[in-house]
Amino acid sequence: MFKADRGWRIGTTEAGYSTLSPRLRSVSMRRRCKDRRKEPTFRGKRCAAMTDPELRAQSFEIAWRYLDQSGLLTGEHKDSARFILNRIDRMMLRGERRRLLLSNAAIDAYRLRPVLVSA
């Protein structure tokens, strides 16, 4: 019985580890992940299967936690959440899929937003 008959991929051992060099392995991973619109994880040896709502929620959670713990959240929480999500959504519409970049951009936009002062 050949390895191909058992469902193994060429270039892997019986335990499933890759026999390719690290450089070739990362090149082959990039090729496999290139067509997907998801964030590739080369350390995990597979592409991250993250949907847009999950990415949006995780980016929002990172930004919200940071702003809350640093004491930068001011005003109504509903308005702040809407502002952060709007920024994340606009970047996702432009094709950005990196979670930390989305959250950091939302944090920076929130810090620099014009605040209306009511007298």
Rank of each mutant, 00 (worst) to 15 (best):
Lys34Leu: 14
Arg46Ser: 10
Arg31Val: 10
Ser118Asp: 09
Ala15Ser: 14
Ser70Pro: 00
Lys3Asn: 14
Leu102Cys: 06
Arg37Thr: 02
Met1His: 09
Phe60Gln: 06
Asp5Ala: 12
Phe2Trp: 07
Arg98Met: 02
Gly44Ala: 15
Pro53Asp: 08
Ile107Ser: 00
Ser21Arg: 09
Glu54Leu: 08
Ile10Phe: 12
Thr41Val: 11
Ala109Tyr: 04
Leu93Ala: 11
Thr12Glu: 15
Arg25Pro: 02
Pro53Tyr: 04
Arg56Ile: 00
Gly75Val: 08
Leu24Tyr: 10
Leu73Glu: 01
Pro40Gln: 08
Met92Tyr: 07
Phe2Gln: 12
Leu24Ala: 15
Arg31Lys: 13
Asp5Lys: 10
Thr13Asn: 12
Ala106Glu: 07
Asp79Ser: 11
Leu55Ala: 05
Leu93Cys: 00
Glu61Met: 09
His77Gly: 14
Ser118Ile: 09
Glu14Asn: 09
Ser26Gly: 00
Trp64Ile: 03
Glu61Leu: 12
Ala49Trp: 04
Ala106Cys: 07
Gly16Val: 06
Gly16Lys: 05
Arg37Tyr: 01
Asn104Ile: 00
Ala15Phe: 07
Ser28Asp: 13
Trp64Val: 04
Leu101Thr: 13
Gly71Met: 03
Trp64Ser: 06
Leu20Tyr: 14
Ala119Arg: 12
Trp64Glu: 07
Arg36Met: 12
Ser18Asp: 14
Met50Cys: 01
Gly7Cys: 01
Arg9Trp: 03
Arg31Thr: 05
Met50Gln: 12
Ser28Thr: 13
Arg6Trp: 09
Ser103Leu: 06
Pro40Ile: 07
Asn104Gly: 10
Ile107Thr: 09
